[in-house]
Design a protein around this nucleic acid. Structure first.
Lengths: 121, 121
DNA sequence: CTGCATCCAAGGCGATACTG
DNA sequence: CAGTATCGCCTTGGATGCAG
């Protein structure tokens, strides 16, 4: 991993992080935590626009309650947007925001790390 | 964020990820999840070697039970190592492994993401 | 000093039924 | 179609006391 310059930069960051409250890393993790949020975000990254029941079908096993709650929280955190069309029956579309898309490098790094982890064990 | 090449690479990854089980990203997150593990790892990244009660003092608010459980799980996952010296009284030293150190780029990306998130809101 | 055993509270998560 | 309401389980995490 990384060269020495990067390593030093990383360690410098770690030393500056708040070890108790207001740690940006933990805040970020909380925002995408929970059992379903990452799957929802991944699906929205794949599809750009998804409807409620479509998402429910895509995420095998999720219940109405959890999908509804997760979507609302993700919307409150500005990671996704919700558009409601008052047709009959109602149509609602969810899509990911730029902030949501900005998670891609992090997801990428997590994937790299896990791959290294597996291949070296 | 990122140029178009990187973006495409990231999206390609997302599309290949297992949307149900065995997703490497979720597996990685589970391994560093929970209330205290990230703080423990951060402290070990700062100090290289730490003893039990020293760590307990550093992590304000953690209980014996949680520190003990977290340390054992981190050791089982090969993110830290435990060395016991049978002196009197017993002395135990914990330090981070290379696998643990490899988390640095991920933590760095999470920090970047959160900073962008905050400054653009 | 370094933990483990036990008990307890809170919240995440799920099943089911129902509504505009 | 897109949710909400209610209920209940089970896991996570905390408090306390004890042990090698």
């Amino acid at each position: 991993m990384a060269n020495n310059n990067e390593l030093e930069q990383y360690l410098k960051l770690i030393k500056e992080l708040d070890s108790d409250n207001n740690c940006p890393v933990r805040s970020a993790l909380e925002m995408i935590g929970g059992k379903w949020k990452l799957r929802i975000l991944a699906q929205l990254l794949r599809k750009e626009v998804v409807r409620f029941n479509e998402l429910k079908r895509d995420l095998s096993g999720i219940t109405n309650t959890m999908l509804s709650n997760s979507l609302r929280e993700l919307e409150n955190d500005c990671l996704i947007t919700r558009k409601q069309y008052n047709e009959m029956p109602v149509r609602v579309e969810y899509n990911i925001t730029d902030r949501g898309k900005n998670l891609l490098p992090t997801i990428y790094e997590l994937n790299i790390w896990w791959d290294d982890f597996i291949t070296s064990s």
